[in-house]
Design a protein around this nucleic acid. Structure first.
Lengths: 260, 260
DNA sequence: ACCTGAACACCGTTCAAGT
DNA sequence: ACCTGAACACCGTTCAAGT
């Protein structure tokens, strides 16, 4: 029998009543010794994650940034994982959620593209988000706001409920994967001190192709020739992203028309 | 100027000649003191990652498993990251690569489904793969074999080269995202000691819905009612995965037909 | 109520030393 | 050529103690 680990910061114990966590600063006293509270800690966490990445983030490092002892943070937060979950949801707050309630709405295709674009940008802007999304349940309030918007837009396609689940997965797991790789690639380039194009060419040139696959490697090279010929990596990635969305939207339309 | 970090185990320095790493056991002497070599170390690494997950893996833990001092491993491998890259490519060797060269081939739709299925299963079987895919360049030999097979199949769709890149991203970034979440969910359930269905229901019940989104939450509930009514999580996930692939294949077919 | 310091059980990696 | 031991600079977290 495994020791029951907590499922999420956002999920209180269901065995008893749902009581609010006592540690949040509720303004009971105006001035706290160090001015610390969950808000401030979470903001500092996001800032540090942006600046140095998930791998280098530590509770001690964070405490240093806050001008406080490492253990002070533990008054406001149970574990490092809880803090990361808070930071994750805070970042999800940057997503631009389109209005899905107005009288006169753009078609679902347009809104789906908007949602995909804002999610992609978030993942690229904060490369540390992607491993955390994989690691936690992601049921924070900001995250839910986004999920709801996605569901509302997909509901307008005319797919059945079961198909809607598949379509949501299709589009947003794709964006997740795409943004993950893209974000990490940019981060790596920055770390190594190369531009994306330099890094790309260096990686292409650096490894020798085994003889037995020399011929289908030429095909791969043709696929990438847009970049080889001086086109830049960013432009190619935008193109590929658009093609993928076009393709998926066309696919949804086909499923819908088959239902009629 | 950043200190030049190594790009990948698979990428030797290009400044000089490409010399083979001297540390691999080349059978020069039949018997080594501890019988250690890269092969054995890599296999033990995969086994340990499967058993305890990426978070608990450490060089010291691995050395213990091999009956050796932590520092012995460093004779065969430069860093922990290099070792993880080796383990990653070894796992990619489990992918079932369909024949893409035969005279009489199944249609590309079938082969694309096969490739998607084998990749999904790999990600679910080894949940530690997903964060590593996001973290390294992924240009190991086994990984390349898979990429080539994907490119060959997509090439048979009739899409332009630029569209082919988009289609590859669309399908396999989707599978990556899907397998990531699925694999991690299973891992979490095992850690907490719940079945997937128990975990699912507990998570659904555990958090209270904010009032201002109570109405669109009912829609989310209807979307999930297949599970609520005793259907199991696994079956639902298989369905959703199939719908997503159907949708993307239909989308590719549409792009192809628009080209005519 | 909030914060600190010392301590525990870990990490990855370096380096000088052994055989 | 291969392996060890001690050491360095880190981790997350517990716990008793301060104010």
């Amino acid at each position: 029998m495994a020791k029951a680990a907590r499922m999420s910061v956002w999920l209180e114990d269901t065995d008893g009543a749902v009581e609010p966590r006592p540690r949040a600063s509720r303004g009971r006293r105006a001035e706290q010794p160090s001015g610390l509270d969950r808000e401030r800690i979470t903001r500092a966490t996001v800032k540090l994650l942006d600046a140095e990445g998930l791998a280098k983030f530590s509770m001690r490092r964070l405490a240093g940034e806050l001008g406080v002892t490492a253990m002070s943070v533990y008054w406001y937060v149970d574990t490092k994982d809880d803090l990361l979950e808070l930071a994750l949801d805070q970042a999800f707050g940057e997503l631009e959620i389109p209005d899905t309630d107005a009288e006169e709405l753009p078609d679902w295709q347009t809104q789906l593209r908007e949602l995909a674009a804002t999610y992609r940008e978030l993942l690229v802007r904060h490369p540390w988000i992607s491993p955390l999304v994989g690691n936690f349940l992601n049921v924070g309030p900001k995250s839910l706001l986004f999920s709801r918007a996605v569901q509302r837009v997909i509901a307008r396609t005319g797919l059945t409920l079961a198909q809607q689940r598949g379509a949501v997965s299709s589009v947003f797991q794709f964006v997740y994967g795409y943004g993950t790789i893209e974000g990490h690639f940019r981060q790596r380039c920055a770390e190594v001190g190369l531009t994306q194009d330099e890094y790309f060419h260096k990686a292409m040139a650096a490894f020798s192709v085994p003889e037995e696959m020399a011929d289908d490697f030429s095909h791969a090279e043709r696929m990438m020739e847009a970049v080889e010929e001086g086109g830049d990596v960013d432009a190619m990635r935008d193109m590929d992203f658009q093609v993928a969305l076009d393709l998926q939207i066309a696919g949804i339309e086909t499923l819908v028309s088959q239902r009629r």
